[in-house]
Design a protein around this nucleic acid. Structure first.
Lengths: 161, 161
DNA sequence: TATTGTTATACTCTATAACTATA
DNA sequence: TATAGTTATAGAGTATAACAATA
């Protein structure tokens, strides 16, 4: 597996960290292609997912969870609202706040997204048998938990500081 | 590990593909921070690495290997050349071609980069014991090979189509 | 005419900061 | 005055296409 490198002291390209970056980028690109078929970008899909998970939150709260500035949410929500997937509900008690909710169409699309995620995962793991997939998943889940990665928050967002 | 989701049909956020994207993005961000200490961007580091690996290639050839348009290389090479890390050598036989080579300073910096890559890998794998690290590395290497990922080509570049 | 490297331009994405409306 | 959402602006990074030099 190790190949000789003509330049003295060249960095090891085959580290797990490097492979993780490569495969992670590949997985993200493949996912982006798939959600594009649903006319969604990965950040839009991530927002949809988060709103489904914790409905009724304010845009500020959602932005904080995603680790993105609130201003970025505006265009994101706008796009999904225009397509009837997401809805802003003004809080009558404090009219500055608008809580986010999925519409029925949004829930339906989310179901499609779920199916897509399954086939995406299958494509990414293609070539590994069942036992190997379980091993890989266990190791990745361990690392993610150790690093405090928020489940469901897409890498398109930085995540909380 | 599985938590209930209030929205029907929410996509499984804990797939290996999703974890791979999350951890890959994290690893890439951590690497970017480390190379920033050497005043390099990840694409610059990737270019340095590739030139070390296959010195003397034309910019067109390097661009093709990285899967990036040749025009993008210009600024990249400019920056590294100004810092005395990389050198263009005009081919006297065909003066359109300029081959790329590392300078001594470039080789020295590459050695630093190698050390950095090792500690980066260690940081990414922190929390796993030796056996688990070996398992993880084997699985990732298998996947990378199956997907035809070019060793050493940084995710900052798309890679050959 | 074809090819290498370069420049010019435009586009996408994101963050920062100023603004409004409510409180 | 303080806060939620919005708008405006600017920056980084990249791709596309036009260009000049050389063959």
């Amino acid at each position: 597996m190790e190949t000789a490198c003509p330049a003295e002291g060249a960095p090891p390209e085959g580290t797990s960290a490097f492979l993780l970056s490569q495969l992670g980028a590949l997985s993200a690109r493949m996912f982006a292609e798939r959600v594009a078929a649903l006319d969604l970008t990965p950040p839009q899909a991530g927002l949809l997912r988060l709103v489904a998970w914790t409905p009724g939150q304010s845009q500020q709260a959602v932005a904080a969870q995603l680790g993105t500035p609130p201003s970025r949410l505006v265009a994101l929500v706008d796009g999904l609202e225009e397509r009837g997937l997401l809805a802003r509900r003004r809080n009558p008690a404090d009219r500055r706040l608008s809580s986010l909710h999925l519409t029925d169409a949004g829930v339906a699309l989310l179901a499609e997204l779920a199916g897509l995620a399954v086939s995406h995962d299958d494509e990414v793991c293609e070539g590994l048998d069942g036992a190997e997939r379980a091993q890989l998943h266990a190791l990745l889940a361990r690392l993610a938990e150790l690093r405090g990665l928020v489940p469901g928050v897409h890498p398109g967002f930085r995540g909380p500081p």
